[in-house]
């Protein structure tokens, strides 16, 4: 494992910690898209089916369980916790995420490495992860004002994607048979979605001002 991959995993983990912190400390999930969070649950459950079939390392197994567990906990809080669910901005979270699930699944049936149950679900999870942030980004744009922790959450998620691209570049040049075009192309698309957000994030950081997205 190279340093970029590790940095990617850590920023991914930090983004989840930031989100859990926001929900637990403020007992509020305002500004957070439940639809994006539900998509992440589907992404992790579909991708980590290999928990039952392949063992790669203790690190991988633990991280997979943490991602599945934390995403389930977040959705549970937003749907079931009495105080938290009252703060959910349902009227701002109207993205029709079922289309993303359907589209990703159809794409996985067409584009995959092998036509097996596990490989189809793996490709599906990759495509779905690429678009899963969209409901959240649309919600941020609609609400305009982004609170600090929500901004940090999306920033760390974007950083995770950026580090994974550096990791692939590194692996491409250091490993003889590195080819995984499905993951790399989807990863590029996914990272591109964050470009706009990053632009405004850095402007607000430079001006030491609150993060605001144009309507």
């Amino acid at each position: 494992m190279n340093i970029f991959r590790f940095a990617g995993d850590m920023t991914h983990l930090i983004s989840i910690v930031v989100l859990l912190l926001k929900i637990y400390a403020t007992k509020s999930c305002s500004g957070i898209s439940l639809k994006t969070q539900e998509l992440y649950v589907i992404v992790f459950l579909a991708r980590y089916l290999d928990l039952f079939t392949d063992f790669i390392s203790v690190y991988n197994t633990v991280m997979k369980l943490v991602f599945i567990g934390s995403s389930l906990a977040i959705v549970w809080c937003m749907r079931m916790h009495r105080a938290v669910k009252r703060t959910y901005d349902k009227e701002l979270d109207t993205f029709r995420h079922y289309f993303l699930v359907l589209g990703s699944f159809v794409l996985a049936l067409l584009l995959h490495e092998k036509f097996t149950f596990q490989e189809i679900f793996w490709a599906f999870s990759i495509y779905l992860e690429a678009v899963a942030i969209l409901p959240q980004l649309v919600m941020l744009q609609r609400s305009g004002n982004v609170d600090n922790l929500t901004g940090q959450y999306v920033f760390f998620l974007g950083a995770y994607r950026a580090f994974y691209i550096l990791n692939w570049i590194y692996r491409f040049f250091t490993e003889p048979h590195f080819s995984r075009w499905i993951a790399c192309l989807s990863g590029l698309v996914q990272t591109a979605f964050y470009a706009d957000f990053f632009y405004y994030y850095f402007i607000s950081w430079k001006n030491n001002a609150k993060l605001q997205l144009p309507a």
Partner: peptide, 10 residues
């Protein structure tokens, strides 16, 4: 036969 590449990323 080529050994299958394990999906070692998260």
């Amino acid at each position: 036969t080529e050994e299958e590449e394990k999906k070692d990323e998260l």
